[in-house]
Computed example of a mutant assay.
Amino acid sequence: MNNWIKCNFNRVFLAILYLLAIVNIYAEVTEKDILLQYVKPLFIPVFVVFYLTKYRYINWYFVSFLCFMFLSDLTSVCYGNAKILQFSALFYFASYLSLLGFITTKFKGFRFGKFLAWYLIFVFILNTYLLYQLYTILDSIMLEPLEVLFFGLRSAALALLVLISFAVYLSSESKSSILYLLMALCFVFSDLLYYIHYYYIYDISFVLFDKFLFATGLICLFYYLSIRNEAQKRAIKIRSYNFVFEKQQQVVKH
């Protein structure tokens, strides 16, 4: 019964997030700015409501990510105000830094062989080169120097996020590390597609994949946090059982 409820709960969460993505796509394609202003900031509140319905604990890194992501979504729909859009880019950068800060704590203590270390360096250099090529294209298109700077910062944060997430995955190969890596990849490609269709080539397929990748990234994060919470619950139960067992042993000895 509990598994059935859990399965339906997750399905409802997935359906609502993807429905939001569809409505966002419709609002952007039909250029209904008012609808977009109301709908785009709803991703994070929906995530928080569903998460807090099921769990009570959340790491402060993820609280920071959700807060900054909500502020960035909220300010990103103010198309007529360049200053607010710059703040939006700054909030996006801060949200990705929060995810990077968390996964960095999981990276400590891991040691890699020479082949794996060189492979990770190669992946990082390749990602950096591709991002630099996009940076040079956007540099000639963007009018505001701060926009170019924030794009560079966001890209660097996302590149490091993918690199370290990939390194953690190769070290542990756990389900949670796969989810975190998938989340990072979804946010990277969603961000790149946004910049491409907003500044370079407008195509409906870019808008479609951008929104669905962003929603999928949030879903991966939700499942990642669920796994962490379930693991913490099991650890608490084990500690409580051990505590009771030790007490019983002490009583028997006396």
Rank of each mutant, 00 (worst) to 15 (best):
I25V: 14
L126E: 09
F47N: 03
I227H: 10
Y200C: 01
Y57E: 00
Y57Q: 05
F166N: 04
G217K: 01
N127H: 06
N2F: 15
V244R: 00
Y96M: 00
A27R: 09
W60P: 03
F115S: 02
S155F: 05
M142H: 05
F122P: 06
S190R: 11
F124C: 03
L17T: 06
E28T: 13
Y224F: 13
F151C: 02
K247E: 09
I44K: 07
K237H: 12
V39A: 10
L99F: 09
L90E: 00
S140K: 15
F214L: 09
M1H: 08
Q86E: 03
L221R: 07
M1G: 02
L213T: 02
L36Q: 13
R228H: 10
Q232L: 10
N8T: 05
A167G: 09
Y38F: 14
S155D: 01
F110W: 14
L185R: 04
L36W: 14
P41R: 02
C67Q: 01
C67H: 03
F93M: 03
L74R: 07
S205M: 15
F65P: 06
N24F: 03
I103G: 02
Q249C: 11
L66V: 00
S165D: 04
L20Q: 08
Y92L: 05
C7M: 11
S174P: 07
A231R: 15
Q249T: 06
L179N: 04
Q37R: 15
L134E: 06
I178W: 15
F243R: 00
I137K: 14
S95C: 07
R234W: 13
I103E: 01
I16C: 08
Q249D: 07
I58M: 14
K211P: 05
L14E: 12
K237V: 07
L185M: 12
G113V: 03
Y51I: 03
P145M: 06
G80V: 11
K211E: 14
M142L: 15
I5E: 12
